Structure formats: C-alpha cells, structure tokens
Amino acid sequence: MIRRIADLHPPLARSLRILIATDAWRPQVNGVVRTLGRVTHELEAQGHQVEVVGPDRFRTLPCPTYPEIRLALLPGRRVARTIENFKPDCIHISTEGPIGRAARAWCLKHGHAFTTAYHTKFPEYVRARCAVPLAWSYAVVRRFHAPSTSVMVATDSIASELLAHGFTNIRRWSRGVDTELFRPRDDKDFLNLPRPIHLYVGRVAIEKNIEAFLELDLPGSKLVVGDGPQLPELKKRHPGAFFAGEKHGEELARHYAAADIFVFPSRTDTFGLVLLEALASGLPVAAYPVPGPLDVINGSGVGALHENLKSAIEAARDIDPGLCRAHALEFSWAASARQFLGNLAA
C-alpha cells in the first residue's frame, strides 16, 4: 500500500532512509542544486538518512548547448545497485535526465513508489533552442511524471499550468532562503559603479531572457552576476554592462546587498530562488508578471511586475527595502524540508 508520509497517523517517529536521484548536483550552480542541498541538510538535521545520486558518481558527457552541465553516461546499473544497497524507504526523482530516468525505470520494475519534482519548464527551454512544439515536449514530460505519487511544484501558478497540460497528483513544495547570509549590509560602496545599480543574478543562458534587461536604456549601471553559455555573446553585444562572473556565498551576498534594484527578466522559471535572496538582501524586484514572480511578489508590495520591464524597474525604485526584507523572512528552508518530507511516499 502506497502512503504519503504526511498522511500517516500517528506520524512516523523513526528515521527515514531517503534516496534522491538527480541530474543536477554539485559542482553545478543553479536553483535545483541549491534547493536539494539545503533540503538535504535540513532532513539530515532532523535525523533522516539521505543518499543523493548525482552525476558526480558517473562518467559524464557535456549536455548539448550546456557544456557546464554534465549528463551521466549509461547510469542504469550503478543507479540500480545504489538503490538496492541503500534500501531506501522513500525515493525522490528530481530531474528528467539520465539519472532520473534510470531511477524511474528501477522503481517501475520493482514496484517501488516514488515522487518527482518539476523544477524546470523543460518544454519552454527546448523550444527556445530547437523550436520543438510545446505539445510534443509536454507529452514527453507528462509521461515521465505520470507514475509518480506526487509531482512536487514550487508555486500555485506552475501547478495550474501543469494541470492544464494534463498532469495529475500535483503537490506544493515551496522554497526557502538563508536570511543570515542574505541580508542588508552597510558596505554598499563595495560596488564602485554608477547608481542606481540594477542587478541580475543567475545563469547566463538564452532561456533567462537577460537581453531584455540589457537592452533597456536605464540610468546608473547594469550588473550581471553569473556564468553560462550566453556570457561571451552578451559581453560582446553589451559592452556598457558589467559582468562579474559567478559568485558564491559571502561574495554573492555582498553583491546583492550593494545593489539597488533586482531585475528578473526570465519568463520560464518555476520559482526563482534569486528572488528570495534579493528580497532578503533588501532589494525590490522588477520582473514580468509570470509564474515565479507572480507567486513570490504579487500583492506583497515588495516588487513591481509589468509587461514593460522598464516600467517595472521604474516602479520598483520607490519600494521600501525594509518591506522586502520582512517578506523574505516568511520563507524558511526548515519549512520547505517539512513540506518535502510530507509529500514523500513510503
């Protein structure tokens, strides 16, 4: 009998053995990796045993158009062996790549319940690169998630979109932010750039729509923090912008805190952890009214959403940084981990 952890009465008191299969893992730098890393840390702090099966365990090949992302080469046997040796109570499949597919195949063969997550708007990403019809890509992704007991999504907007595309068994799994690391700071002169400083943080890739930001005529400076396949092209096309490269930890937090406005031009993110990091740092957000920003920002007064990105930026300039910080304090990784745990199947 398949049971969700949240439905057990009384709740399980014992430690659970949780296996997470993911094609996105360290040393990759993205929201999926940060989410899994923080939730794993929280689960282990609660006494659970977590085994993460990522591409670092396999021979890999570079992902087409994303050479920084390595895809496991024929991971089936090792994934199966790892599952059988670990003997998990719960299996969570985080991504639809080779490792995720290998874990899914093992679960289906052995009748083991599993959960999945929809971290990435994969059909939209494929269309941005290859012009594949959305209906085709959604059919493939929907088939992958169909046997899952719970398809975890970060926001209500994404849940509604997936329901419209025929997905079922959708459950919420929100995100958190480290409000001790990402916080307002006094050393704004750390960035010696003309103000106001408009900041983008994230992967520098075509699906992030960064050029919509860089093309704008704005006072002050445009600062891009991150790395990715589109970085050389954008540097060449926008010599007036500043590109700081990839930053982590304290250095990343200082960049947030020293900026004035956070600009989020993506139309395809399912959440956008960077939104919370910016808000925790006291930065108002300017973005399009799309899933992610709509769920994190809409109605809170901590950002401006508009189909004209420049109009959103202009409106965001008048927002109180203290309000942004207070909104971010409502999100915690401990709560995210509890929600994740409750969605798992045992």
Score class of each variant (00 low, 15 high):
F114Q: 01
L108Q: 11
D189S: 07
A105C: 13
G166N: 05
P133G: 03
W106V: 09
A103S: 12
A102P: 06
L216V: 07
L108W: 01
P123M: 14
A102N: 07
A80Y: 06
T82D: 13
P123G: 12
K188I: 12
A105P: 06
P184F: 10
I197G: 07
R142M: 12
Y125L: 15
E124S: 13
L108E: 04
A139M: 04
N192A: 13
S160K: 08
A131Q: 09
L134Y: 11
A164L: 08
E211V: 06
T116I: 10
T179N: 04
F213W: 13
T179S: 09
C107G: 11
D89Y: 00
D187G: 08
A113K: 13
P88D: 07
D89E: 03
I206G: 14
A205D: 14
R171M: 08
G100Y: 09
L108I: 02
S137Q: 10
N169K: 08
F167M: 00
D187V: 10
E180M: 13
G97K: 03
V204M: 05
P123E: 09
G100E: 06
E207Q: 09
R172Q: 02
K109A: 00
P219M: 08
L134M: 10
S148G: 12
W136R: 14
H198P: 05
A212I: 14
T95V: 06
I91L: 07
I83F: 07
R104T: 05
I83C: 06
N85Y: 13
L218E: 01
W136Y: 15
N192V: 11
K121V: 12
